[in-house]
Design a protein around this nucleic acid. Sequence first.
DNA 1: GCCAACGTTGGC
DNA 2: GCCAACGTTGGC
Length: 161
Amino acid sequence: MNYWLMKSEPDVYGITNLEQQGKTVWDGVRNYQARNFMRQMQPEDLVFFYHSNTKTPGIVGLMRVVKTDIIDPTQFDLKSEYYDPKSTLNSPRWQTVLVEFVEAFANCISISVLRGKFDADELILLRKGNRLSVMPIVEDVAVKILAMKGNSLNIEPLSIE
DNA sequence: GCCAACGTTGGC
DNA sequence: GCCAACGTTGGC
């Protein structure tokens, strides 16, 4: 079982949306490195849900991989902003995963708190200029993050959105 | 294959 | 809103 982190802008799709829906196909990833990490995912893997591009960016919850190797349907959808004219039905470029909601943390573990706890070597998220939206988390770090989720000393309140 | 120009990401 | 860092595009 492996751990991952995936980013989403809460204005577009946040942890609340996933909680309501229960499951979602993580569509719209158009970066090869991120896609390649999703190809490595296995059912039962745990994924931290990260809110990016918001007042308090950080980890807000947990989800679980249900099904892998899903063809991202938006690549064929002319009306989608993720439509990819170079993708064909015979050889689709973009695969993704189906994930299910596990939990929403009581508080956001903000990137500044994560910076205080980990360094860039152990957490890709913290690397300078990092823009990757899907990344692996080593177990040691994942366990520490999970231990932080209930510790009010280490967290900041979720901003009201 | 190089690389400048451009568009996007995302923290601050 | 700013802007550094990054990925992609396309001319050559």
